[in-house]
Amino acid sequence: MVSVGLLPVLVVSLLLFTIGVVGVLVRRNLLVVFMSLELMLNAVALAFVGFARARADMDGQVAALFVMAVAAAEVAVGLSLVILLFRTRHTTQLDDLTMLKG
């Protein structure tokens, strides 16, 4: 039986991360950008789990848990910001949100 090994896990993780990066950079909808961010976080979590398996050490899994927790926190705050923005600006399009200009 062919075992999995670290390499495929990392490849998948990196591809997933890349897809996330593309989403973050390309999409204009704030919500989708958030989802792409979630993809990137998950890619990292996957890498952590893979490393945990490779080193036979539970620390990686703990890190994955932390990633999850951070993601939860981030989504909570981020989504309330989205709602707030929508309430005041009636848009979730990122290109419209350039009001910092001085």
Binding site: S3, V4, G5, L6, L7, L10, V11, L14, L15, F17, T18, I19, V21, V22, L25, V26, R53, A54, A56
Partner: peptide
Amino acid sequence: LVLAGIVGCASVAFAAFEVSGPF
């Protein structure tokens, strides 16, 4: 897109060089 491609390819190549073998 180009960047993502570079990042992805470079990372994969990087990983492939460094990591091998079963768990």
